[in-house]
Structure formats: structure tokens, C-alpha cells
Amino acid sequence: MEVSLTVNGQAVTSEVEARTLLVHLLRENLGLTGTHVGCETGYCGACTVHVDGTPVKSCTMLAAQVEGAEVTTVEGLANGELHPVQEGFWERHGLQCGYCTPGMIMTAAGMLADNDNPSEDEIRHGIEGNLCRCTGYHNIVRAIEYAAAKMRGDEPAAPDWEVV
């Protein structure tokens, strides 16, 4: 079957099987490999993308379900610039192996679009659907706080370490 949608601002049409997952449409058919697969059960969140502005786990959605939708992946989040969340992850060491990072960034960006002044508790619960095995989440939380401050036009809090 054929599916037509908008991905990162570009209209695309692709041939898929009825059972093809959205994540495989993105990765295999469209070559957007920034979206990762970690668990195939919708639990780890590495595959998170935005569908019509809402973060969804693309391994639990069929490609056929996004007919006519607008999908944004990590590659299209800021189109070559850095989204404040991406900047925060770099500035506050929010990633190590980087595998969960695209999904984590997409979830955080979706959360901050709704609320640019979340508490630490709100951030922690807001990213509970995305698992990271490297960072213990400490610096992911700091990265999202950094991004929230930037989005509000505030000065981000100083990092835990001395800046050189």
C-alpha cells in the first residue's frame, strides 16, 4: 500500500506493507536513521517522534496510521540549527552513548512546548516513558532545565562543574 505524509516539512509518498511500523518507514524507506529502535514494545522511547506535534513512540504505530499526518523526527527538529533542548543536552552532558537521545530530546521538546517552566519533579515524570541506561537521568534533567530557561528567555543555571 501507499502512504503519503509530511516528514520534517517535506511531502513524501512511500510504498509500505500494511504491517510496516512507522519507525521502519522512517528508517528504512526514508533513510532517517536518527530515530532508534530499542525494545519493540513501546517501553524504552528511543523511537519517539512527533506526529502532528505530539510525541509518539513510532515502534507502536503503523506507517498506515500516519496517512496525511505531519511527522517530525530529530533530524527535522531544528533543521540544522540546534533546538534549545539539543543545545541543553550538549551543554549539560545530557547524553553518553547517544542511543536514547533522539527519543529523549523529542519527548522533552514536546513537554516544553506545553510547559516551559516545569519543576524538576515534572521533568522527571514527564520523561518516564523514555529510558536511559547511561546517565542516571541527572544531567538529562539539567539539560531540560537549561532548555526551559532558554525558551523562557532566562539565564540557565550554572552547571555542576567548573566551566573552562
Binding site: 536513521t33 530515530t35 533530524e75 550538549w90 547524553l95 547517544g98 533522539p102 530530546i105 562543574w161 573552562v164
Partner: peptide, 14 residues
């Protein structure tokens, strides 16, 4: 504590 050189690729899906 310099920023990681790995990160620009990893945070943009590259």
C-alpha cells in the same frame, strides 16, 4: 570540563 565532541552528531540524529 570541555563539552563533548561526540555530541553535535548524536543530538541531531546523525
Amino acid at each position: 570540563a570541555i563539552r563533548r565532541r561526540e555530541d553535535p552528531a548524536l543530538i541531531q540524529g546523525h
